[in-house]
C-alpha cells in the first residue's frame, strides 16, 4: 500500500512539473500581451515578474487593430478555413460514399489510388502548383487558398472506412422507403457519421488554420493574407514591439484553444483515429 501511495505522489509530481513545461510559454504570451508598458516588458522579460504585469490593460490589443488591418486578416483566415472545411466535408464524403456503398467496377482500383495519394506531402506539389495557379491568374485571391485544399485523400479514406462499416440493411430499409442513392447519402449516411465528420473537420481545421508555406507564396499584399502570414510579417518589422506581437499571437491562439478545450474528447478521438492504420 505504501508503495502504491509513493507511486501516486511521484506521478503527481512528474505531471505537475511537465505541466509547467508545457504551459509556461502560453502564460508568458498572455501576461506580456496584457502588459501595456513596453519598457517594463523588456526590463522583466527574464524573470518571474514577466508573468505578473503590474497593471493589466488591453492597450496592446487595441494597438494591433490600429497598426494593421487585423480584422481583415481574421476574416480572411476564418473565411478560407470555414469554406474549405464545409465544401471539403461535402465533396470528400460524397466520393467516400460512392467508394464504400455503391458497387461498381474499378472502385477497388480507385481506393488504392486514394491510398497512394496519401503519401504525397503538400511540399512535393507546392512548386508546380505555384506555376499552375500563377498561369490561371489566381495569385492573391481567396480561391487560390481554398480550391486546391478541398479534396484530400486522407479524409476520403477515413470517411470511406467509416461508411464501409455500415450494415447493408441500411440501404435495404431505405429502398423500401423509396429513397434514391442521394437520399441515402444525405438523410441516412451523413447523420450517422457525425463522429467521423467532426474528426475530419478538426484535422482539416488544424491543417488550414496553421497553413503557412502556401499563403506565403501566393499572397502579396494584406488583402487576402491569412493570420499566420500576417503574424510573420508583423514579427519581421523592426523595432519589435513585444507587447503588440504577443497580443497578436494571443488573438490567434486563444479562440482556437477555447474551441479545442470545448471539443477535447472529439479531438482526442480524432488523433487516436489518425494513428490507427
Amino acid at each position: 500500500m505504501k508503495y502504491k501511495q509513493n507511486r501516486k505522489i511521484f506521478a503527481y509530481l512528474a505531471m505537475i512539473v511537465l505541466s509547467i513545461f508545457f504551459i509556461f510559454p502560453l502564460f508568458y504570451m498572455i501576461s506580456v500581451s496584457l502588459n501595456p508598458d513596453e519598457t517594463a516588458i523588456l526590463r522583466n522579460m527574464a524573470s518571474v515578474r514577466a508573468f505578473f504585469p503590474g497593471d493589466l490593460s488591453l492597450k496592446n490589443f487595441f494597438d494591433v487593430f490600429d497598426r494593421m488591418p487585423f480584422a481583415r486578416f481574421l476574416f480572411n483566415s476564418t473565411f478560407i478555413v470555414s469554406t474549405t472545411i464545409i465544401i471539403g466535408l461535402l465533396v470528400n464524403s460524397m466520393m467516400a460514399f460512392a467508394l464504400a456503398r455503391l458497387r461498381w467496377k474499378g472502385r477497388a482500383l480507385i481506393v488504392s489510388g486514394v491510398v497512394a495519394l496519401m503519401i504525397i506531402p503538400f511540399e512535393a506539389i507546392a512548386v508546380p502548383l505555384l506555376l499552375i495557379t500563377n498561369r490561371l491568374g489566381w495569385l492573391d485571391s481567396y480561391h487560390v487558398q481554398i480550391i486546391p485544399f478541398i479534396a484530400n485523400p486522407l479524409y476520403i479514406f477515413l470517411l470511406f472506412q467509416f461508411f464501409k462499416n455500415f450494415p447493408s440493411e441500411l440501404e435495404e430499409a431505405a429502398i423500401i422507403d423509396g429513397a434514391n442513392w442521394f437520399g441515402i447519402y444525405w438523410r441516412i449516411a451523413l447523420p450517422l457519421s457525425k463522429p467521423i465528420l467532426s474528426s475530419v473537420a478538426i484535422l482539416h481545421f488544424l491543417m488550414q488554420w496553421g497553413s503557412f508555406l502556401w499563403p506565403l507564396m501566393v499572397t502579396r499584399g494584406p488583402e487576402y493574407r491569412p493570420l499566420t502570414v500576417a503574424m510573420e510579417v508583423f514579427f519581421g518589422q523592426y523595432p519589435r514591439n513585444w507587447g503588440d506581437i504577443m497580443a497578436f499571437a494571443a488573438m490567434i491562439t486563444i479562440p482556437v484553444l477555447l474551441l479545442f478545450l470545448y471539443l477535447q474528447d472529439t479531438y482526442v478521438n480524432t488523433v487516436a483515429r489518425s494513428g490507427i492504420k
Binding site: L18, F22, A249, V256, L257, F260, L261, Q264, Y267
Partner: peptide, 13 residues
C-alpha cells in the same frame, strides 16, 4: 489536456 494544448497552437505563433 495541458500536454496537448501546444499541438493546437499554430506553429507560427
Amino acid at each position: 489536456v495541458i500536454y496537448f494544448i501546444p499541438t493546437v497552437t499554430t506553429m507560427v505563433v
